[in-house]
């Protein structure tokens, strides 16, 4: 009977299809966020991180999105915001900032804090406070009290970066600072500048996506 066979076939297809769909579904959620990037260990309880911020990722399905990049100990720039650092250590951070200024929603974050000495160094010069309107992004780990504003690049400057990851030859600001990690665990980090143009409050899209303007700091016992 064709109807019955059709039914059996349909049932089989449904069961198999359903199983595959459920598997895919779980896999979609299991799909790891970006690959973790290990901080370079440069001494006993001292590590170094190199990051850059770019105005546009330039490729992939979110090519227009603003994003962070991180550098592996092998000096390769990868599109990731999962950073692994050792516990109870000093972390020297260098951020190459290629994006222009947007301005802070809450001006309070114009003052670097949670960093050693309460200062950050912009192109080598110590800065204790940044005019909030000049901020392009911030690097903030609220649970560690770390918040560092990153001054934007002058929009008139020649040789703007157009292709991520950017190189040192292109217009940028170099910001360095040092913070101290606590015990092992996962700490979230994010940007507080409403830098997602085209979204309400400048806070949609990349501002709410891990791998762009949000990430996790995985502090590991060394």
């Amino acid at each position: 009977m064709s109807a019955r066979r059709l039914g059996a076939l349909l049932a089989a297809v449904l069961v198999v299809g359903g199983g595959v769909a459920i598997g895919l579904y779980v896999a979609l959620f299991l799909e790891a966020s970006p690959p973790p990037v290990q901080a370079a260990v440069i001494g006993r309880r001292v590590a170094a991180l190199e990051l850059q911020t770019v105005a546009e990722v330039g490729h992939g399905e979110n090519s227009f999105w603003v994003s962070y990049y991180a550098r592996t100990p092998g000096h390769k720039w990868v599109h990731s915001t999962i950073l692994r650092v050792p516990a109870y250590s000093l972390v020297h951070v260098t951020v190459y900032q290629y994006d222009s200024a947007t301005g802070l929603r809450n001006p309070l974050w114009g003052q670097p804090r949670g960093v050693v000495g309460g200062v950050m160094y912009v192109n080598g010069k110590p800065v204790k406070v940044l005019n909030p309107e000049l901020a392009s992004h911030t690097f903030a780990i609220p649970e560690l009290g770390v918040s560092v504003p990153l001054p934007g690049v002058d929009e008139e400057a020649p040789n703007q970066c157009s292709n991520a990851p950017c190189t040192l030859a292109e217009a940028h600001n170099t910001i360095t600072f040092t913070f101290r990690t606590r015990g092992p665990g996962k700490y979230r980090w994010q940007c507080f500048v409403p830098c997602a143009a085209g979204f309400i409050f400048g806070f949609g899209g990349p501002m709410q996506s891990i791998g762009y303007m949000d990430g996790e700091l995985e502090v590991q016992s060394s």
Binding site: R105, N106, P107, A196, F199, I200, F201, G202
Partner: peptide, 16 residues
């Protein structure tokens, strides 16, 4: 910091 007010409406507010 802005002067103290009960509420704040910082820029950008909409579709920057």
């Amino acid at each position: 910091l802005p002067a103290y007010k009960p509420t704040y409406a910082p820029e950008p507010t909409y579709r920057a």
